[in-house]
């Protein structure tokens, strides 16, 4: 039953975020647009490239979807409304998200096309930049909660949300999450301008629909993770718990798909340089600061 509720919530949320994204891209609010695009994609022929690595080509979008769904499984929407409350939830989230990279390498290598392959390897470069900045802020969050369980992490924020407790970690985590979802300004793996769509270049029809759906699920998973780790999860006054989760997750996802478009694209080399020379020292400083605060001031 819980699984069904979470899946329905995920579907509704993904649809709303798709509407928001099309609003940010096209400048018009069209609530039916994602449904029409999905129907159009499903109606189109799904072409197969010449001499593809058929196994990877077919598996790529599906593995991406499964990775996103597994990440959603450890995100609590309300007390008791979580697919599985693992003792190692925060680590499990990372493990599920690691397979995003595997899926995109499969999808890039599979169709035997230059643009797709460059897109896939570009994502690997991007991964080397964002990977540590996903894990290290989560370490600081788990240090405060003294637990890796996502439910414990939410309840640890009952007096003060982590966005106020460790703002540095929040900024680093959201920036890394944008890289993980290849959202602008970090959307070089699927850049339209210089790679003709990159990873998406050789996918058409139903396969492309699965790939786009998986990307939406991933954005929802990362927005949910941001809310769980930094914005107090379901905590909030007056409204019921699930409503607070819904409002916060939609707000974060909406910001993720829209704000980045106001900034010029970042090349992977620049992204790597910023991440390793600035991001990782800041993430280490964040862990140190949180450690000191946790030991000295009991909040």
């Amino acid at each position: 039953m819980t699984v069904l509720i979470v899946l329905v919530a995920l579907a509704v949320g993904a649809y709303l975020v798709a509407v928001l994204e099309s609003w940010a891209v096209h400048g018009r609010l069209e609530p039916a647009r994602p449904a029409i695009s999905a129907l159009a994609l499903l109606g189109r022929e799904s072409l197969l490239a010449r001499t593809p690595d058929r196994l990877f080509f077919e598996a790529g979008p599906v593995v991406l979807l499964v990775a996103g769904l597994l990440a959603v499984a450890v995100i609590p929407l309300a007390p008791g409304l979580i697919v599985t409350d693992l003792a190692t939830g925060a680590l499990f989230l990372n493990a599920a998200l690691a397979y995003v990279l595997v899926a995109l390498i499969m999808a890039g290598w599979g169709p035997n096309g230059a643009y797709a392959m460059i897109g896939g390897w570009r994502f690997l470069g991007q991964f080397v930049a964002y990977a540590m900045l996903i894990v290290m802020p989560i370490t600081a969050v788990a240090m405060r909660a003294e637990s890796l369980s996502t439910v414990d992490i939410v309840t640890s924020q009952s007096t003060l949300w982590n966005i106020a407790y460790q703002p540095l970690g929040f900024v680093l985590f959201v920036a890394a999450a944008m890289g993980l979802c290849w959202l602008p300004p970090l959307d070089l793996p699927t850049a339209r301008g210089d790679l003709a769509g990159g990873i998406e270049a050789e996918y058409t029809g139903a396969r492309l629909a699965v790939l786009r759906l998986a990307r939406m699920v991933l954005i929802m998973a990362l927005a949910g993770a941001t809310v769980t780790f930094y914005l107090g999860g379901w905590l909030g006054p007056w409204l019921p718990a699930w409503a607070w989760s819904a409002i916060k997750i939609l707000f974060v996802a909406g910001l993720m798909v829209s704000v980045g478009r106001l900034v010029p694209r970042v090349r992977e080399a620049q992204y790597l340089e910023i991440s390793w020379k600035l991001g990782i020292p800041l993430a280490l400083a964040n862990i140190f600061l949180v450690g000191v605060i946790t030991l000295v001031v009991p909040i």
């Binding site: 190692t88 680590l91 990372n94 493990a95 990279l101 595997v102 990977a131």
Partner: peptide, 17 residues
């Protein structure tokens, strides 16, 4: 549990690189 999840996570990145 911890060792299993850790193994599944680390190998994905290592093998891709």
């Amino acid at each position: 549990e911890f060792l299993g999840v850790l193994q599944i996570m680390m190998m994905a990145t290592e093998m891709s690189v």
